[in-house]
Design a protein around this nucleic acid. Sequence first.
RNA 1: GGGCCUGUAGCUCAGUCAGGUAGAGCGUCGGACUUUUAAUCCGAUGGUCGCGGGUUCGAACCCCGUCAGGCCCGCCA
Length: 534
Amino acid sequence: MHWSDVIAQRLAERGNDHIIATGITPSGEFHIGHLREILTGDMIARAARRAGLNAELVFVVDNADPLRKVYPFLDSSYEEFIGHQLGAIPAPNEDGEPDWNRYEREGWSYGDHFLEPFLMALKQIGVEPRLIPNLTSYREGKFADAAKKACDDPDAIREIIERVSGRELPADWFPWQPIDSKGSLDGLTITGYEYPLVMWTDQYGAKGQSDITKGEGKLPWRLDWPAKWGFNNITCEPFGKDHGAAGGSFATGVEIAAFFGHEPPQSLVYEWISLRGKGAMSSSTGNTVGPIEALRLVPPEILRLLIANSKPNKAIEFDTGMGLVNLADEYERLSSRDFAEELSNDTLSRRQRVQIEDAQAALRLSMVSAGEQAEATSVSFRHLALLAQIKPDDDGIWSSLIESGAISEPTSALSDRLMRMRAWTGSKHFPEEMRIEILSEPDETSLSQLDEEQRKVIHHIATELDAAEWTAEGITLAFKNAATHAEAPMRSMYRACYAMFMGSERGPRLAPILANCVREEVCGLAKSCAAQLS
RNA sequence: GGGCCUGUAGCUCAGUCAGGUAGAGCGUCGGACUUUUAAUCCGAUGGUCGCGGGUUCGAACCCCGUCAGGCCCGCCA
């Protein structure tokens, strides 16, 4: 059974109505690691609906969390905002400086700034969750009940956290973090509590009181999370392994939720995504591939497949090079399979059946809109990568695909894919081994590996090319003539060609590529090769 | 110190929850197509399931131990 269906089944045992939550702190640029969070939630929601349940996906934007430090992409003037809530400080402009103008004019906050592009990417990828800005929840008093329970009995909370996490809390710890005289959550001392007010003194010596029903502060993370489960009626939440460890925030959250008086959600711990060869993704170190950037290169369904096809507890190494090619080809293979047909075979072992069903589920979850049928484009990613490099204009690609019978007309899905393919081939992510390049100098190593017959034909190729009409047809004819005159089979002729022009043993069809190259250069190369061998 | 995850073919991984003679894709090699848009098709190749023990008629799977890698126990998806 696919992992999403396993969770859906567990949800079905709990009841019929479900709210699946995801949550991210908008502290910096979002990356594809965050995509795993939200796609995991989306896939659970789809699986739950498929199982006949009511399911809604929500995205809690943790913009009540404080700015932790001045990240490299921020101007040093952000120093004054450390400890301030992300939804209550201005967004950085292009130079990383606070954009006060926009903040005062339209309330455009730091959190909004990083959230916006992520939401656009989500839309492209077929995920449109209900947004719950956490700061708003605080200001609307949604946390009031939980905050009251915690402040009324801090020792009970302290006991849970200390026992479950095994860490000792400071003596002056209090389950509410007020906002100080300058707007920061850091460095305060709690001096008293009388519902609904928490009395404090800040690091500047100022005194004040914080109303826990009006969001004049926030709950510490370990309480914030279980409190949200309650008033948002969360029944299921996938989260990263950082929260999932023993003694981690989920473990304490389960007990704190019980203390607040509600059930913890069905959990699902997922592994992180790392960038191949570069370690874990992290907004603060800038080691990221943004969802927008990823979508510029890869169609959304393929990005979805990456998540759907990996079990949550499996770490994913995102590889923008050959890994992407393999993933895309995998998608093509899946979409051309007839699962119903495969499953109708009743000699299948249990294992084989499960494998087919999981592949079917993964493909289904990869669709941008749920319920959409996967359509094989009948043009592999590899093939398109080739064409995109050879043919500078799209029309040339369509006509050659039509000619070869691969397609009957260019569909919008295909031209969309081609657009991304061109972005990819032009980017630094495009793998060298996929890059087609005609040599400018003879490659001695390749030439030296040719046998007698293959060498002999090179002279003829040079001569024939010189006289050829410079079109794909003309060049093909020249090749044939060369083989005939050298009395060599076409096989040897091609082998020689690849050694000459590409320094390889095999390759894509040469004539159309050469036709797009400068004639003098190609002929010059052929002559140098011939000269070198004689 | 406590805990979690991972370790299966050259590579990426299924298979472990319900024990029943090791799977897929890619790669590699060979062949076909009077040479191909790295195509396609056919065939072959390939694994002491990290290691050691135990339970069992039978273990990749369950139990105990052990090694290696990653991670968590302040914040991070």
